[in-house]
Amino acid sequence: KLPPGWEKRMFRSNGTVYYFNHITNASQFERPSG
């Protein structure tokens, strides 16, 4: 389970998975720990 605010997303163009935090508007490719 991801830390609060984080969700898994995917770029439609190339299928790359990334993680987005809707609380802080942060995004990263590494899976957030917590």
Results as ranks from 00 to 15, higher is better:
Glu7Met: 07
Arg12Glu: 13
Leu2Tyr: 03
Gly34Ile: 12
Tyr19Gly: 00
Arg12Asp: 15
Glu30Leu: 08
Trp6Gln: 01
Gly34Arg: 10
Tyr19Val: 00
Phe11Ile: 14
Phe29Lys: 07
Arg9Pro: 00
Leu2Thr: 03
Gln28Ile: 05
Ser13Ile: 11
Lys1Tyr: 12
Asn21Tyr: 06
Gly5Ser: 02
Lys1Ile: 12
Ala26Pro: 02
Pro3Cys: 09
Pro32Asp: 01
Asn21Lys: 00
Val17Phe: 13
Phe11Thr: 09
Asn21Met: 07
Thr16Ser: 14
Phe11Asp: 15
Pro32Trp: 02
Leu2Ala: 01
Asn14Trp: 07
Gly34Cys: 06
Lys1Ala: 15
Gly15Asp: 05
Ile23Asp: 07
Arg9Thr: 01
Asn25Asp: 06
Ser13His: 12
Lys8Glu: 12
Trp6Leu: 01
Ala26Phe: 07
Gly34Asp: 12
Gly5Asp: 05
Thr24Phe: 06
Asn21Gln: 04
Lys1Phe: 11
His22Ala: 10
Pro32Leu: 01
Met10Ser: 08
Leu2Ser: 03
Ile23Leu: 10
Gln28Gly: 04
Pro4Thr: 07
Ser13Phe: 12
Asn14Arg: 10
Tyr19Asn: 00
Thr16Gln: 14
Gly15Leu: 07
Arg31Ile: 12
Asn21Arg: 03
Asn25Thr: 06
Val17Gln: 05
Trp6Lys: 01
Arg12His: 12
Asn25Ile: 05
Met10Gln: 10
Asn21Gly: 02
Pro3Lys: 01
Phe11Arg: 09
Asn21Ile: 11
Phe29Ile: 12
Pro4Gly: 05
Lys8Trp: 05
Asn14Thr: 14
Arg31Glu: 09
Lys8Leu: 13
Asn25Trp: 07
Thr16Asp: 05
Ser13Gln: 11
His22Asp: 05
Phe11Ser: 13
Gly5Lys: 00
Gly5Glu: 06
Arg12Ala: 14
Leu2Asn: 01
Ser33Leu: 11
Arg9Lys: 08
His22Pro: 08
Pro3Arg: 01
Tyr18His: 01
Gly15Ala: 10
Thr24Pro: 04
Tyr19Leu: 00
Ser27Leu: 15
Pro4Ala: 12
Ile23Gly: 03
Arg9Ala: 02
Glu30Thr: 10
Ser27Thr: 14
Phe20Ala: 04
Ala26Ser: 11
Gly5Leu: 02
Pro4Glu: 09
Tyr18Thr: 00
Gly15Lys: 05
Asn21Leu: 10
Gly34Tyr: 14
Ser13Gly: 12
Ala26His: 11
Ala26Leu: 11
Ile23Met: 10
Pro4Trp: 10
Gly15Thr: 06
Thr24Asn: 06
Gly15Val: 00
Phe29Gly: 02
Asn25Pro: 02
Val17Leu: 03
Asn21Ala: 02
Gln28Leu: 05
Phe20Asn: 00
Arg9His: 05
Pro32Phe: 04
Tyr18Ser: 00
Phe20Gln: 02
Lys8Arg: 13
Tyr19Asp: 01
Pro4Asp: 11
Ile23Glu: 12
Tyr19Glu: 00
His22Val: 15
Glu7Arg: 08
Thr24Ile: 04
Thr16Met: 14
Asn25Phe: 10
Ala26Thr: 13
Ser13Arg: 10
Pro32Gln: 03
Lys8Pro: 03
Lys1Val: 13
Lys1His: 13
Arg31Ala: 08
Pro32Asn: 01
Pro32Met: 02
Gln28Lys: 04
Leu2Trp: 03
Thr16Ala: 14
Arg9Glu: 02
Leu2Gly: 05
Ser27Val: 15
Ser13Leu: 08
Lys8Gln: 12
Ser33Tyr: 14
Gly34Asn: 12
Phe11Ala: 07
Lys8His: 04
Phe20Asp: 01
Glu7Tyr: 08
Lys1Leu: 13
Gly34Phe: 14
Lys8Ile: 14
Phe11Pro: 00
Gln28Arg: 04
His22Tyr: 15
Leu2Pro: 15
Thr16Arg: 14
Glu7Lys: 08
His22Gln: 11
Val17Lys: 05
Met10Ala: 08
Glu7Ile: 11
Phe20Glu: 02
Gly34Ala: 12
Glu7Ser: 10
Tyr19Trp: 10
Thr24Gln: 05
Phe29Asn: 05
Thr24Glu: 02
Gly15Asn: 09
Pro3Tyr: 02
Asn14Phe: 03
Ser33Ala: 09
Asn21Trp: 08
Phe11Trp: 10
Glu30Trp: 08
Ser27Met: 15
Ser13Val: 11
Gln28Thr: 09
Lys1Asn: 14
Asn21Pro: 00
Pro3Phe: 01
Thr16Ile: 15
Lys1Gln: 14
Ser33His: 10
Phe20Trp: 10
Gly5Phe: 06
Asn25Ser: 10
Arg9Phe: 08
Ser33Glu: 11
Glu30Asn: 07
Glu30Gln: 10
Ile23Ala: 07
Gly5Pro: 08
Met10Ile: 15
Arg12Thr: 14
Pro3His: 00
Lys1Trp: 13
Tyr18Ile: 06
Pro3Asn: 00
Phe20Ile: 06
Gln28Met: 06
Gly34Glu: 13
Asn21Phe: 08
Pro4Gln: 07
Thr24Tyr: 04
Ala26Glu: 15
Asn14Asp: 14
Gly34Leu: 12
Ser27Arg: 15
Asn25Val: 06
Gly5Ala: 03
Arg12Ser: 13
Gly15Glu: 07
His22Trp: 14
Pro3Asp: 04
Gln28Tyr: 03
Arg31Ser: 04
Asn14His: 09
Asn25Met: 13
Tyr18Asn: 00
Gly5His: 06
Arg9Tyr: 07
Gln28Ala: 07
Phe11Gln: 09
Phe11Val: 11
Pro3Ser: 01
Ser27Trp: 15
Gly34Met: 12
Gln28Phe: 04
Glu30His: 08
Ser27Gly: 05
Asn25His: 15
Ser13Trp: 13
Val17Ala: 09
Glu7Gln: 10
Gly5Ile: 02
Ser13Ala: 09
Pro3Trp: 03
Pro4Lys: 07
Gly15Gln: 06
Gln28Asp: 00
Arg12Tyr: 12
Thr16Trp: 12
Pro3Met: 02
Pro4His: 08
Glu7Phe: 08
Ser27Phe: 15
Ser27Asp: 02
Arg12Met: 13
Ser27Glu: 15
Phe29Gln: 06
Lys8Phe: 10
Ser33Asn: 12
Gly5Arg: 02
Thr24Ala: 02
Gln28Val: 04
Thr16Gly: 09
Val17Met: 05
Asn21Thr: 04
Ser27Ala: 12
Gln28His: 05
Thr24Val: 03
Arg9Asp: 00
Tyr19Lys: 00
Val17Gly: 04
Ile23Tyr: 12
Pro4Val: 08
Leu2Gln: 02
Val17Ser: 07
Arg9Leu: 07
His22Arg: 14
Gln28Pro: 02
Ser13Asn: 11
Arg31His: 11
Gln28Glu: 03
Lys8Asn: 02
Asn14Leu: 09
Tyr19Ser: 00
Tyr18Phe: 08
Ala26Trp: 07
Thr16Phe: 09
Met10Pro: 03
Ser33Gln: 11
Tyr18Ala: 00
Tyr18Asp: 04
Tyr18Pro: 00
Gly15Arg: 06
Phe20Ser: 02
Glu30Met: 05
Pro32His: 02
Tyr19Met: 01
Pro3Gly: 04
Asn14Glu: 08
His22Asn: 13
Phe11Tyr: 14
Arg12Pro: 13
Pro3Ile: 01
